[in-house]
Each structure stands twice: as structure tokens, then as C-alpha cells.
């Protein structure tokens, strides 16, 4: 049971990472990041069956952080949309070395 959960969690995490690496849409990147966090949550819950309640506490904290991050991310993406009219990161070119 734990192993399966861990494998699912790892797969979800990997999906998140791959998405981050391949996509350029800010919203999708943002979703991938959230996916990574939640994949980790799954791991924590699974490990909690072995090690007790600490993992659950951690999960609640991660959820909080993820929520704050989501709120913030939404705001930032909206700001980007207002400035650039797009959320595609490859179109953001004001900062070039």
C-alpha cells in the first residue's frame, strides 16, 4: 500500500517536473509546481502510516503554503497578463542580458 502510494507520488512528481521543463505557459507551469507539492503530500501521508502523525502535520502545512502560493501565483499571473497580454513565458522579453 505504502509502496504503491509512493510510486504514484513519484510519478506525479515526475509529471510535474517534466511539465515544468517542457511547457512555457505560466499557468501550466504554475499548475505543475502545485502538482509537485501535492505529489509530495501524498508521499508524506504514505510515510505517516509508518512514522506517525508528523507527516500529517507537515501535509497541512504544505497545503497552507500551497494555498498561499496559489493565491500569489494567480495574482502574479494576472499581473503578467495585464502587462503583456499573454501568459506565455517565451513572449516575455523585457529582461535580456
Amino acid at each position: 500500500m505504502i509502496t504503491e502510494a509512493l510510486i504514484v507520488s513519484a510519478i506525479l512528481f515526475a509529471i510535474g517536473v517534466v511539465g515544468v521543463l517542457t511547457r512555457r505557459n505560466a499557468i501550466i507551469l504554475f499548475m505543475c509546481a502545485e502538482l509537485m507539492l501535492n505529489a509530495v503530500n501524498l508521499s508524506f501521508v504514505a510515510f505517516s502510516r509508518l512514522h506517525g502523525v508528523t507527516g500529517h502535520v507537515f501535509v497541512i502545512m504544505v497545503m497552507t503554503v500551497a494555498a498561499a502560493e496559489a493565491a500569489l501565483g494567480l495574482a502574479i499571473v494576472i499581473a503578467i497578463y495585464r502587462h503583456f497580454g499573454t501568459v506565455d513565458l517565451s513572449n516575455l522579453r523585457t529582461l535580456r542580458g
Binding site: 497541512i60 497545503m63 497552507t64 493565491a71
Partner: peptide
């Protein structure tokens, strides 16, 4: 944009309930 705003506020305050 108000709808976004409500969404954000919800996310934040809902988590408070979780605690």
C-alpha cells in the same frame, strides 16, 4: 477581476478553517 480576488481570498481563508 473581482472573481479572481474572491478565489484568492477563499483559498487563503479556507485554509485557516483547516487549521
Amino acid at each position: 477581476v473581482k472573481f479572481y480576488l474572491v478565489a484568492m481570498l477563499f483559498i487563503v481563508f479556507d485554509i485557516e478553517t483547516v487549521f
